[in-house]
Amino acid sequence: MRCIAAIPARYQASRFPGKLMERLGEKTVIRTTYERVSAMELFDEIMVITDSEAIFHEMNSHGARVLISQKQHHTGTDRISEIAEDLEADIIVNVQGDEPFIERRALEKLLKVFKKDIKGDIQLSTLAHPLKDPFDIQNPHRVKVVTDKNDFALYFSRSSIPYYREGEERADYLGHIGVYAFRKQALIDFTSLPILANERAERLECLRFLEHGRKVKIVRTTYKVIGIDTLEDLQRARKKLLFYK
């Protein structure tokens, strides 16, 4: 099974434009993410797909395989899907460029789903971790997911789902981590699926699969995401990097 990691790298992020070219220690955010994934030795190939000449030159100058997307895209997954047809791969993993602390064990668990799925029933899997902090539960930038008993997604939302009618706080909220593993054909198909009402309202690409009746396997992990969506996130990431050193 040939597995590729593809890192979508949009320059003009809506909440924090240019964040991938910000410094995280001695390197840019995008370079830090790329080198972290590369060091895991989980993938047969790793590449960056970007809309930015600046990101292209940054990554190309450090030996990465980097491609410039030719179209405008709604999501990182759509950006990867543009070039998926030409990739020699069975599984393509979308690792967000703003996840510089993504853990090996989390990605390893994601890939194991497909290794165990002999019949090829699972087309898309993604990560989730327990949410216990009330701030994270209420924060619309921390996406939540609810699952069925077999850990297939029922719904993703920026709202605090599930809602407890009696107001009781419970420790079974799941926070979605925006790392997706697709079978190649499922990724190719993704971009041809129309964007429907819920994805348009929530601006969550994972809802596209659900709204078209496809299943999404949730892989639970203890990895606590430190994605970089705001300047405050970047400051926290810089502090974490100092802690690592």
Rank of each mutant, 00 (worst) to 15 (best):
N150C: 05
Y155E: 14
E108Y: 07
L234S: 02
E41S: 11
F182D: 02
G213C: 10
L107T: 06
G97S: 06
F101E: 07
L107K: 09
F101Y: 14
M40F: 15
H57Y: 11
F190T: 03
L174E: 04
Y244R: 12
Y155G: 00
A186R: 14
G120K: 10
R158Q: 14
D78N: 13
K119M: 07
K112I: 01
A171D: 15
L242S: 06
R65E: 10
V216Y: 06
A9D: 07
T147K: 10
P8T: 08
R15C: 02
S125R: 03
C3W: 00
S52R: 13
D98F: 01
L107F: 06
P194L: 07
A9M: 07
R220W: 00
K19S: 07
S160F: 03
D117V: 04
S192F: 07
E199L: 07
T222V: 01
A89N: 11
R23C: 02
F43C: 04
F43Q: 09
M40R: 08
A181H: 09
L124V: 15
L110Y: 04
E108F: 04
G120R: 11
N94A: 12
E103L: 02
F135W: 09
K112T: 08
P134N: 02
K112M: 06
R104N: 09
Y11P: 01
K144Q: 10
I4S: 02
R23A: 08
L127C: 03
K116I: 00
E53R: 15
A153L: 07
I218Y: 07
P17G: 12
L127T: 04
F16N: 13
G175E: 09
I161L: 08
R65W: 01
K239A: 05
E199G: 04
G18A: 05
R31D: 04
R183Q: 09
I137P: 04
H62M: 00
I80P: 08
F243A: 08
K109I: 00
F209S: 12
P130M: 05
E232F: 00
Q185F: 01
F114R: 03
P17S: 13
A186H: 11
S160E: 12
I46W: 01
T77I: 15
P162E: 11
K19R: 15
Q123I: 00
V93N: 03
T32V: 01
Q70N: 10
Q185I: 01
R200I: 01
M21Q: 10
A181D: 07
I4D: 02
E26Y: 01
A5Q: 10
E85L: 10
R79L: 14
P162M: 13
T28A: 13
I195L: 13
K71H: 11
N198S: 06
L107A: 06
E205K: 03
E41M: 00
P194F: 09
A6L: 14
P100S: 06
G227D: 13
E211F: 08
G120P: 05
T147L: 03
R170H: 14
H212W: 09
I228D: 02
Q123Y: 02
M1L: 12
